[in-house]
């Protein structure tokens, strides 16, 4: 069989998928690019060509800068916390103790919950009138009176980050736990005979085997955190006083609440660009980490 026929056949077999991908991703992308150069409204006429107006307005606009800052803060803090808690949980669950299997199974539960359910659950916990957090804190004497955790600009973002961590640290823990099982017993034994303490053992024995898989977890989580929408929409809708308005929330408000399709499109493209740059940068990092561990 000739290689041209093999190539042709491969393309033929992929054709249906390509058509669908182009229709549901390719075309909207192209149309978004077009929209971003117009002043189109969501409803009504196509709008007029306005050049880079949308982009210039966005970059000089306070809203965009605040949203970019909120998104970055959310992503950096929640992903860092998820990585640390995830690795610690994995180290713990890698020890031998009674009931370990049950705990390992329970670990996956928060991550398996739909985000909307998780968000609703945490809204209940943070509820200013009957929330469990208020009750617990007042009962141990750390708090005098109930507070509205999601209602105050000073605490809303932190409350969101905690809820997001609770949902997502299990993914990191699971990946880390799988990696820990791959650490050869002999090397652990050798480090014991060599006199390595817990920290040296983590640094020289465990970390080399953890680095690659953790890098993958880091990439996945950062990209997801940068695109965060649903948990915030359910819990705060970007409020109070726009303190939790991330880029995705801003895009939604611009395009659908204010019906400005043109500037919404330009915002969406900028978010896409940021995530793409992150993905490519991380991809290179992953390849480097994987290369050094082999």
């Amino acid at each position: 069989m000739s290689s041209t026929w093999m190539t042709t056949r491969a393309w033929l077999l992929m054709l249906p998928l390509l058509v669908i991908m182009l229709a549901v991703i390719g075309w909207p992308m192209v149309d978004t690019v077009r929209l971003s150069f117009t002043d189109a409204k969501l409803i009504g006429s196509g709008g007029a060509f306005v050049g880079f107006d949308n982009y210039l307005k966005m970059l000089s606009n306070n809203n965009f800068q605040r949203a970019l800052y909120a998104t970055t803060w959310f992503a950096v803090v929640s992903v860092t916390a998820e990585m640390v808690i995830g690795v610690l949980a994995a180290l713990l669950l890698n020890q031998r103790f009674y009931g370990r299997t049950v705990l390992r199974a329970l670990l996956i539960l928060p991550w398996a919950l739909p985000t909307v359910v998780n968000a609703t659950l945490w809204r209940l916990i943070y509820n200013p009138e009957y929330g469990a957090l208020n009750a617990a804190l007042t009962q141990v004497g750390l708090l005098d009176s109930y507070r509205s955790w999601l209602g105050e600009p000073g605490t809303a973002m932190t409350a969101l980050i905690i809820a997001d961590c609770w949902k997502n640290f299990p993914l990191v823990a699971l990946i880390a736990l799988a990696a820990l099982q791959a650490v050869p017993r002999d090397i652990t034994s050798a480090s014991l005979v060599d006199g390595a303490g817990p920290f040296a053992r983590f640094r020289f024995v465990i970390l080399p085997y953890l680095a690659g898989p953790l890098m993958v977890a880091l990439v996945l989580r950062t990209i997801e955190a940068f695109k965060v929408f649903d948990i915030i929409w359910v819990m705060t809708r970007g409020g109070p006083a726009n303190s939790t308005r991330t880029l995705s929330i801003l895009v939604y408000q611009e395009a659908f609440s204010f019906q400005r399709a043109g500037s919404g499109a330009s915002l969406a493209l900028v978010v896409t660009l940021i995530v793409t740059v992150l993905a490519i940068g991380y991809g290179m990092l992953v390849r480097r980490t994987a290369g050094s561990a082999a």
């Binding site: 050869p184 002999d186 090397i187 034994s189 050798a190 480090s191 005979v193 060599d194 006199g195 390595a196 303490g197 040296a200 020289f204 024995v205 970390l207 080399p208 085997y209 050094s292 561990a293």
Partner: peptide
Amino acid sequence: AMVFQSYALYPNLTVHRNIGFGLEM
């Protein structure tokens, strides 16, 4: 001191540091 079947070398340390690891610790 013990020598293992799978060699059990520390993968991200140089040969120099692998040999000297026990002394370093």
